[in-house]
Design a binder for these strands. Structure first.
Ligand SMILES: [Zn+2]
Ligand SMILES: [Zn+2]
Ligand SMILES: [Zn+2]
Ligand SMILES: [Zn+2]
Lengths: 157, 157
DNA sequence: TCGGAATTGATACCCGGTCTCATTGGTGAT
DNA sequence: ATCACCAATGAGACCGGGTATCAATTCCGA
């Protein structure tokens, strides 16, 4: 938060809200800042807690509502982690894509749909389905976490 | 249920349990039957209700525990529907694959991983991640529902 | 400035799923 | 068959994410 590297992303989120005809209220601005400030994925509860640390009195429901709104604008996306719990990641609303998520630190990369579209199309045709949606999620260990891991292993050896 | 087209699937599920060293108790048999009897996806609550209709006194926790067990054996898989709710589908445990689900009737088809493996691999390499898991889910309208839909449309016209 | 619409917070509620714990049932060794 | 032991079960408390309600507030456009 605070003017910094993410302030432009904050601004983009707010613009998306306005463009869609929603008010850019202080609460929503706060959520936008918090979202923009996270590197990887985050849960609603985390956001709420961080939000409360900065500014008292942001309601739980308000946070959920803001996230729901941002999700509907495709500014964030809800992930289903392998653990079964839910998390959100900030997202480029302009282009369909998928996510590669580090299961250790939560960092997330956008993955272009690429050849997948063709694949999905073919699967639909082959099965006679009219495909309406698809979801691809990749989970793994990011370079940083991987490096940290091997480093630790070596000091132990 | 009842000896029928799905009795062999029921048996396969039970064999999977035994093979993994778990007891094939009456409750688990019941769950296996119920699972085998569903064409498409089902929720834990549905299963519980159907189970109670056949045989009183199967505990909620028991059903959840059985499903968890079957999921760990890859005999069923938990889906995250676009709606956000969870459902299970029966699954071939022997080969990695994905699911194509009808958003109208819930019917589900197994989809071979095929080229996806290569794609996933490449994405991992390109981003320096060590990929641990991936999930692909496809949603659409199955041929039957599609046909029913157009038929209805025509009678209205 | 004013009135209606949008937003908000508190709180109750819902629902899927898990935990606890006392009871029961199955299994394998004898 | 018996016994001891571990697995499985049911009831119910519990939990966490998310939604519904509703009155109070804030916003915004005329
Ligand atoms: Zn994204
Ligand atoms: Zn990482
Ligand atoms: Zn269908
Ligand atoms: Zn796959």
């Amino acid at each position: 938060m605070r003017p910094g590297i993410n302030s432009d992303q904050t601004e983009r989120i707010i613009q998306a809200l306005k463009r869609a005809g929603y008010q850019a209220t202080p609460n929503r601005r706060l959520v936008a800042e918090l979202v923009a400030a996270t590197g990887g994925h985050f849960t609603a509860a985390e956001l709420l807690e961080r939000g409360r640390r900065e500014r008292v009195n942001i309601g739980r429901a308000t946070v959920f509502r803001a996230l729901e709104l941002l999700a509907s604008l495709r500014v964030v996306e809800r992930l289903d982690l392998p653990s079964g719990s839910h998390a959100y990641v900030v997202c480029d609303p302009d282009e369909h894509h998928h996510h590669l998520v580090c299961s250790t630190c939560g960092r997330s990369e956008d993955i272009a749909d690429g050849e997948l579209a063709r694949l999905v199309d073919e699967i639909g045709r082959r099965n006679g389905y009219r495909i309406e949606a698809h979801r691809l999620e990749l989970f793994g260990i990011c370079p940083a976490c991987s490096a940290a891991d091997t480093a630790e292993r070596e000091t132990l050896a």
